[in-house]
Each structure stands twice: as structure tokens, then as C-alpha cells.
């Protein structure tokens, strides 16, 4: 899928530099800590000599702060989840920062390259199945309470962020999609909707909407079912 770039080169440089000076204590200053078994003690790193970005990267991926070995449902590890791919890195914009034109183009191109279409073309599936998928926020959660994909099917989380049909309360991180079917089911509309669910960065670079097709949360059939829920005239999304 997306190429995972390892920890920023600058950090590696900073960390290795610090490793040379270190080796005596687990604390993050020059203070001497209580004696501890040497093997368990990482080399000393001086946080105050690192840029905020380098320190953040160190804290996330090198400091033993997260369980990097924790297994994930897709068969990788916590480290893989926390290592940023190109889109994640380009879109980690700080306070008040907007994506610039060059980054936008790059992100859109990466997103376009990620999208795979069904062999027989884009068709609508079963809106009833789509309704359940749109509602469900199950799946891929790990941390202290990992989801078991044998017991539950991962969902699309759509209601977390969108109002869809009016029989359930949706969030408003994304725009309301109530009555979405009024836009029709032209080939362009089908492609647009498929693309947005598969990888929304192709239209909305650095959007907060997840790339649920591209990262394998939803398969092509499930996307077709959710599309039916959005576009089928009989779906509750399109009935008052």
C-alpha cells in the first residue's frame, strides 16, 4: 500500500549523537538516578537538545512509551500503526496550518494511485448491509481492549462523523449526507462516491476522513453496500 518511511533522518542523527554521550541513567537529564540493572536502562537522551519534532518522533517510536510489539488485527504490530506513511506525514499540519499547493498535488496523486476499482465496474450493493456498516465503529481498535474481528465485522464509522438517515444521531465532523441520493447515480457520481470512501484525499487533500478502502478497513463489496445506503432511493438516507 503506502510506503512507510522510517523515523525522520534528522532524528536518527540527533539520537545517535546523543547515544554517544549517554549510557548512565534512565532519566532524561544529567541527574543520577537510583541504580538499576544496566541491561534494562536505555542510553541517556537529552530532550532539551532535540527539536520538538525530533523529540515527538523519539517519544512515539523509540522511547518505549507505546507497546510497539502489540499485535494488530491485520497481522502487523503497534510500530507499524505508529509509523507514518507519506500522506500521514504530509498531513500532520500544526495549529492553523493549511496544506500548501505542492503538498496538495502530491497527496492527491498518492491517493489517486491507491484506488483500485472493481473488475465489473462500480455497482451499488445492498443498502441494508450498508446501513449496518455505516453505523458500526467496530474494528481495528487495539490499545487496552483489542477488537476481535472473528466476533465482529469492522465497520465504516460513517455515523461518527456524518448525519446520514435521520433515525440515528450522527456526528458533524463531516458534512451531513442526508438525502445524498438526490445527486443521482450517473457513472461520474458512482465514481466520485466510490473514490471518496476508498481514499477521500483524492478530492480533499489532508481531509480528516479516513482512507477506508486504501488501508483495507472496507473491501470493495462493503463499499458497494455503503454506496447503496447513500444512493439507493429506497435507503432511509433518501426517505424523509
Amino acid at each position: 500500500m503506502f510506503k512507510k518511511t522510517p523515523v525522520a533522518a534528522s532524528l536518527v542523527a540527533a539520537a545517535s549523537l546523543l547515544l554517544i554521550t549517554g549510557g548512565c541513567s534512565a532519566t532524561n537529564t544529567g541527574k543520577t538516578a537510583e541504580a538499576k540493572p544496566a541491561a534494562a536502562v536505555p542510553a541517556k537522551v537529552d530532550y532539551t537538545k532535540m527539536t520538538p519534532a525530533a523529540l515527538a518522533e523519539y517519544l512515539v517510536l523509540e522511547s518505549d512509551g507505546f507497546d510497539l510489539k502489540q499485535p494488530t488485527q491485520e497481522g502487523t504490530t503497534g510500530r507499524h500503526r505508529l509509523t507514518q506513511d507519506e500522506i500521514q506525514k504530509a498531513c500532520s499540519l500544526g495549529k492553523g496550518k493549511e496544506v500548501d499547493d505542492k503538498t496538495r498535488e502530491k497527496v492527491m496523486a498518492l491517493a489517486a494511485a491507491s484506488i483500485k476499482y472493481p473488475e465489473g465496474g462500480i455497482k451499488l450493493g445492498d443498502w441494508k448491509k450498508g446501513r449496518e456498516l455505516a453505523w458500526s465503529g467496530y474494528g481495528f481498535r487495539t490499545a487496552h481492549n483489542p477488537d476481535d474481528h472473528v466476533k465482529g465485522t469492522p465497520g465504516g464509522n460513517c455515523y461518527n462523523c456524518h448525519q446520514l438517515a435521520t433515525d440515528r444521531t450522527g456526528g458533524n465532523i463531516g458534512p451531513a449526507l442526508t438525502g445524498y441520493g438526490a445527486r443521482g447515480t450517473s457513472p461520474d457520481m458512482l465514481k466520485y462516491t466510490y473514490d471518496v470512501i476508498y481514499n477521500p484525499h483524492v478530492y480533499f487533500a489532508c481531509t480528516n476522513m479516513p482512507r477506508m478502502g486504501a488501508v483495507g478497513v472496507l473491501n470493495q463489496q462493503q463499499i458497494a453496500d455503503i454506496m447503496a445506503y447513500l444512493l439507493d432511493p429506497n435507503s432511509p438516507v433518501n426517505k424523509q
Binding site: P52, A56, V60, Q88, C91, G94, V217
Partner: peptide
Amino acid sequence: EVMFYRRAGTMDF
């Protein structure tokens, strides 16, 4: 602060 804006994970949050 950097961590607050750092996107990662299955959902890019």
C-alpha cells in the same frame, strides 16, 4: 504539541 497533530494509525487520526 507535535504529537497532538501527528497523524497515524489505521484511520489517520
